[in-house]
Simulated scan of single mutants.
Amino acid sequence: MLDALPGPGGGVVRFSRSELRLLVAANGAVFWGWDGAAPLPSYALAGQGPEPDPRAVLEPDKDGGWRVVAERVTVTVSRHGAVEVCTPGGVPLRRDLPPRWWEPVGGGTARWMQRSRVTADARFFGLGARASGPRLRDGAYRLWNTDPGRPFGPGDDPLYLTMPVQLVVADAGTHLVFHDNSWDGTVVLREGEEGAGSGHDRPGASELRMDGGPLRCWVIVGTPARVLHTWASLTGAAALPPAWALGHQHARWGFGSEQEVRRIVAGYHERGLPLDAVHLDIDHLDAHRVFTVDQERFPKLPVLAEELRRDGIRLVSIVDPGVRAAPGDAVYDSGTTQDAFVRDASGDVVRGVVWPGETVFPDFTHARVRAWWGGLYRERLAQGFSG
């Protein structure tokens, strides 16, 4: 460690070959980023992100390190670059060892690795949708959204939705860690083990390897409820759903016709089971193309939707943002006119293969593309869908 430059809510700690930016936000969340990584720009944060906490001050700590003491958390930085997160009472919850970077042999973007230690009784949750269930057992979890294209079960990984967010629960407190990075990566977790009276606990461990992108993260400490509330204030709360969306729902692939939908709904009624919504998957679309309807199997979809609504049941549609790359397709032609699709570093439109065949993908990082895509939902509403 060379020196530190205090600033609003924290400051910058400089080492011989790198630097660490540390910030405590007014909502209690803690940010740190290595080698120039800052909170912004970010697609994850709500608005411009939280303001710094003016009460949080970067100050010298013992053994040549620095620390920030805030209302809900204390963060210390050792002279070697380890970052430790503690409760307001000083109980350690997490310790991040100094990160490591390396250049691929064939050249390209620098990759990095972050090793962390948590308390022996800590248990891991999160990382998006995992076939293993909400509690994450020992193993490796990839951060790369993937459609398995087949039935899946426990142990299959990754799946459709992955998130670089861990919720770590321990007796001393709960903390959430969000690495704000969209690159491909892998998290390897190992639960700790308490010493059963011997006093020799084995801490839990988390190792994150990323193929590139900024090394930056947010950490939130508190009770589970407070942690999740702060997380919502950081990234934006979910939209308030209608009351029926909190009810009983039937969702699966395989509704081959309007008659099949009616048969399933009748089965609920015959058995006295509650039902508030029925979801239609891609099999109701014309050749799996988004914002279309197979007129042979669903010739009177608005009539079906109205029948269900009279029984208090809403019809919900899948919306798959893989647009068939075929001139003449209405969504493709409209998106091409709007220059709405994802492009690679060379400026070429990115193409992939999904259910409709060769596809392109809307670039939702642009507000104008989000507005264009949102306007396409008029077709779904006209078909009688409620969601």
Rank of each mutant, 00 (worst) to 15 (best):
residue 148 P to V: 13
residue 95 R to M: 06
residue 120 A to F: 06
residue 170 A to Y: 06
residue 207 E to F: 01
residue 172 A to P: 04
residue 162 T to F: 02
residue 58 L to N: 05
residue 128 G to W: 10
residue 172 A to T: 14
residue 39 P to S: 04
residue 311 D to S: 13
residue 141 Y to C: 06
residue 360 V to A: 02
residue 250 H to V: 05
residue 97 L to I: 02
residue 377 Y to W: 13
residue 339 D to Q: 13
residue 184 D to L: 08
residue 244 W to K: 01
residue 344 D to G: 15
residue 236 G to I: 03
residue 62 K to N: 04
residue 383 Q to V: 03
residue 31 F to C: 01
residue 38 A to W: 02
residue 221 V to S: 02
residue 359 T to H: 04
residue 200 H to A: 13
residue 97 L to K: 07
residue 155 G to C: 08
residue 186 T to G: 01
residue 366 H to Q: 15
residue 206 S to M: 14
residue 315 L to G: 01
residue 276 D to W: 04
residue 19 E to H: 15
residue 88 P to M: 10
residue 340 A to H: 10
residue 119 T to Y: 04
residue 233 S to I: 00
residue 361 F to Y: 15
residue 320 D to K: 00
residue 119 T to K: 05
residue 80 H to L: 09
residue 272 G to F: 12
residue 96 D to I: 01
residue 288 H to K: 12
residue 2 L to E: 09
residue 78 S to M: 00
residue 310 R to P: 05
residue 214 P to M: 00
residue 90 G to S: 08
residue 359 T to N: 06
residue 384 G to V: 06
residue 7 G to M: 04
residue 71 E to H: 13
residue 28 G to L: 03
residue 24 V to D: 01
residue 384 G to M: 05
residue 337 T to A: 15
residue 48 Q to A: 14
residue 176 L to T: 05
residue 18 S to Y: 05
residue 7 G to Q: 11
residue 383 Q to C: 12
residue 72 R to D: 15
residue 241 P to H: 05
residue 180 D to K: 00
residue 257 S to R: 07
residue 197 G to M: 12
residue 168 V to M: 14
residue 45 L to A: 08
residue 14 R to G: 03
residue 316 V to P: 00
residue 154 P to W: 09
residue 89 G to W: 06
residue 114 Q to F: 00
residue 319 V to G: 04
residue 5 L to A: 10
residue 175 H to M: 05
residue 135 R to H: 05
residue 309 R to K: 15
residue 169 V to M: 11
residue 184 D to T: 13
residue 210 M to E: 09
residue 69 V to C: 07
residue 42 S to F: 00
residue 118 V to N: 04
residue 286 D to K: 03
